[in-house]
Write a protein that binds this DNA or RNA. Structure first.
Lengths: 161, 161
DNA sequence: CAGTAAATCACCCGAAAGTATGAGGCCGGT
DNA sequence: ACCGGCCTCATACTTTCGGGTGATTTACTG
């Protein structure tokens, strides 16, 4: 993702230059107006923060996950590290598929089992609280449970955790 | 989500306020200088580029997700080590005493781990909902957790379950 | 290209969970 | 007899969850 980030920075620079030019132009254009600078500062601020946020969201989207041996990726995976397994070591392959549990849902489930709140999960996954809720709802449905605690129990008993 | 969006808005406001302040300051500070606006532009650019980059990095920070025993990450190598968290195996005797967990609390914990709701636990123990809540509160305090899911996790890692 | 699935997010609303505080009864030890 | 721990319950209030609905974007597939 480094390359992409770099590109974005370049893009940023260009945009900045453009805006600087715009400001200079505006200076002569609207010389009479009073709080020109503040206004343009605000506009620029808004625009740039907007760009920043949008950018961040864009960048954070592509997730890479490894399930079992399979690497599912949307972006570049630079390195993989294998952490020696201790236990667990079972039941994932067809089970997940059978239950139709998506990647995102797995991630949510994972954090759920750690006792994180929805808010915290949202933070970890860089998505909104509402999104987490949606994933959870779907997860509950697929696991046929009603509460998060039950979901954890079920997942545990199924070896999903 | 309301929460996060709200945060962003606040952040927005703060950033803009900061900017406005900076500009006002700069205005008096460099009143004599000619290219004031360019300087503003520069400052603004720097600040917001900073913000943008920070956001970009934060949001695109190599996330490491552990599914099963495998860790994948993008970019920088940050090792995520799964510590078995004590894994005290069994340990009930002295541990319970050490944690000062009473009988009733143990029972509640037991049902908690099954994914029962407070209402259901109250039903099983033939006490009121409020009583269950009280037990839970005390339990949370003794386990140093905030939520039921965490309590279950902790109890599990401590071998209380 | 239409259809579908996944992922994202929002808003509303009611239910469940959790916090804080107080209080009364019971029991064992000093 | 008093104290402290445990169990019980209540009231009041805040926060978090979960359900329901709808919408958009992206990507894959027939």
């Amino acid at each position: 993702m480094a390359g992409r980030t770099f590109l974005w920075i370049v893009f940023y620079g260009l945009a900045l230059a453009l805006l600087a030019g715009l400001m200079t132009w505006a200076r002569y254009r609207f010389l009479l107006i009073d709080h020109t600078e503040e206004i343009y500062g605000l506009i620029i601020g808004v625009i740039f923060i907007g760009i920043g946020i949008w950018m961040g969201l864009k960048l954070s989207r592509p997730k890479t996950i490894v399930v079992k041996e399979t690497v599912v990726q949307t972006e570049t995976v630079i390195r993989e590290i294998r952490v020696p397994e201790e236990k667990t070591a079972k039941a994932d392959p067809a089970l997940l598929e059978k239950l139709n549990i998506s990647l995102r849902e797995q991630e949510v489930l994972h954090f759920l089992a750690q006792g994180l709140s929805n808010e915290e999960i949202a933070g970890r996954l860089f998505v909104s609280l509402n999104t987490v809720k949606t994933h959870l709802s779907n997860l509950y449905f697929k696991l046929e449970v009603k509460r998060r605690t039950q979901a954890v129990e079920k997942a545990r008993s199924l070896g999903l955790i």
